[in-house]
Amino acid sequence: MIALTLPAQEGGTFTPPGVSSHLPAIFSIGSFDFTKQMLLVLLSVVLIAWFFIAAGRKGQLVPGRLQFAGEMGYNFVRNSVAKDVIGGKDFVKYVPLLFTLFFFILVNNIYGAIPILQLPSFSHVGGTYLLAIVVYVIWISAGVRRNGVKFFKMAVVPSGVPWPILPLVVPIEIISNFVVRPMTHSLRLFATMLSGHLIVLIAGSGIEFLLAQEGFLLKGTSLLVLIGAVAMYMLEALIMVLQAYVFTLLTAIYIEGAIHADSH
């Protein structure tokens, strides 16, 4: 991302500080552009695979630091997300999906807090749409496998609702479950990654702009902006972790609702 800060010149026009969120392609093949975000996504796959393969390679009874970190990460997703939300014996088959989602999103989010890289992969909406579509297909398939075609009726006709108000409730449930749910699932991740990153970028651009001005007061104000930028940077790092957890948790909730639709 490129920050632009141009001071006003005598007789010239004022250009306010701003940022550009569109990076040029690393290389192009015809109409296909290979971007930095694509490179980071591929890098995340390599990093995650390397870490967990290395962590599980020796498999000692008394784990070392790397094995302990890998087991702790796996157990967190398995027990605190999959088992607690889906429950029973059903959760086991969905642990690989939830485990992959959590660490894939986490690593791609954390990129935004790493100097030089400084770009969360999911600040581009295309990636979040793809993840949401994958989850959408999986939770609907889980519901159909468990309950058959009547799953769609269970999903849009709440139990215990008087039949006279069903014409009002059913369209709302259809829109909520099959349209709004996947949209919000994807946009929540995208919006938080983009907005937090832009706030930090704009603050950095503002610091550069203030330092370029004449006068001690304006230059001194840049220190206050820097303090605010550091605070926002720390908040963004926390949100990066939380959003990986929230996306994975919602996926588990959707799957649980699909396979246990008859009890809702």
Rank of each mutant, 00 (worst) to 15 (best):
V125E: 09
P162E: 03
G204Q: 10
H197R: 07
G220V: 12
V149F: 12
H260D: 15
S20Y: 13
S21W: 13
K219T: 06
F247V: 08
V77K: 03
S123L: 07
S159M: 14
A258Q: 03
L97F: 12
I53E: 05
A231H: 06
A261S: 06
P164F: 11
A212G: 11
F122K: 01
I114Q: 07
V135F: 03
G11V: 10
Q67Y: 04
A258I: 04
Y94C: 13
V134S: 00
G215P: 12
V225T: 04
K219A: 08
R65Q: 10
I255Y: 15
I175C: 03
W139V: 06
K89A: 09
H264S: 11
V77F: 01
H124K: 14
L117E: 02
G220C: 08
L189F: 01
L4M: 03
A203P: 01
G11Y: 10
G70W: 01
E173Y: 07
E256M: 09
R65W: 15
G143N: 03
F51V: 01
F52G: 00
G18V: 01
L39I: 00
M1R: 14
V125Y: 14
T5N: 15
K150Q: 15
G126F: 06
G30Q: 03
A49P: 01
G220R: 10
Y94W: 14
A3M: 11
V180N: 07
I138K: 12
L39P: 00
Q243C: 03
